[in-house]
Design a protein around this nucleic acid. Structure first.
Lengths: 140, 140
DNA sequence: AGCTTATTGCAACAAAGTTGCATCTACTAT
DNA sequence: ATAGTAGATGCAACTTTGTTGCAATAAGCT
């Protein structure tokens, strides 16, 4: 299973034309194996044993994944970025759910934060970030 | 004008039953004088000259204002909390707009992030935080 | 196999916020 | 008015999350 994600990650990264490095492959593999948005810290934990990767390098890898559109960053109220691999045209405009109990974050793919929000005159819309908070099935 | 806000702040604070201290009064007065959500740092700037208040104390005052429901905190993608005085039943459920150019944040009072978001089975809604990003009238 | 340049690791730094504790002060009760 | 007390404040030190500069390394090309 895991090597499956690794191969998948390798192929995705190869297609960007940029270098295929262990750090990028393992980090993306971790994200692919996860159905939810996870923090830098959580990714580090999952890499333990598999690959020793510098903290800073992981930050840079995650930044690179976002830039290349292979993953997306999710802002949260705890000042921590979370990352999730971009699946297909999963694309940009979608909402997130954060459990106020276990802090888990998932993507609400069905919910697209569309651009029909009424803004004051002269304001221009770019994007919307919607985070719904509550309790997940396990914590409820 | 300014002392007007000070008197208003004093009265609001008095009604909580907690102590009316210069830090609380001045901080709330600053928030009342502002129509948008501002950062700890911006509040500190506006207090310069009026009152020398320790960084930590301001953090605690802002926390207290939130707890007492006199102000609300707005999370943002720059990992910085912003605060705004709560006007009337302005209350909780509303959206925010953040200018991607000047980083200014305003409250979209007309837009209430209502609770009809479709969640997965077993999930329980608590609150929603909606941030619309784009350009404000001055930056557009 | 060697070259080139992107990537990595390390150390140091930065911003935002928190904690512990001694000191001070707003309010209360005299 | 004064004194006592719980609650606020100021200071120093710390934490967490993330960033920057730079020398060393290694991925992919020829």
């Amino acid at each position: 299973m895991i090597s499956d994600f690794q191969e998948q990650a390798k192929e995705i990264i190869r297609r960007t034309g940029d270098r295929v490095t262990p750090g990028r492959v393992q980090a993306l593999a971790v994200l692919l194996a996860e159905q939810r948005a996870i923090t830098h810290h959580e990714i580090e934990e999952r890499l333990l044993g598999k690959l020793q990767l510098d903290r800073v390098t992981l930050y840079r890898v995650l930044e690179w994944l976002s830039e290349k559109g292979l993953a997306h960053k999710v802002a949260s109220d705890d000042r921590v970025w979370r990352f999730r691999a971009n699946v297909d045209v999963h694309a940009h405009q979608h909402a997130h759910f954060k459990c106020t109990c276990c802090t888990k974050v998932i993507c609400l793919d069905g919910l697209n934060a569309a651009h029909d929000w009424p803004l004051p005159a002269g304001y221009r819309f770019q994007e919307a970030e919607l985070t719904v908070k509550g309790l997940c099935a396990e914590c409820a």
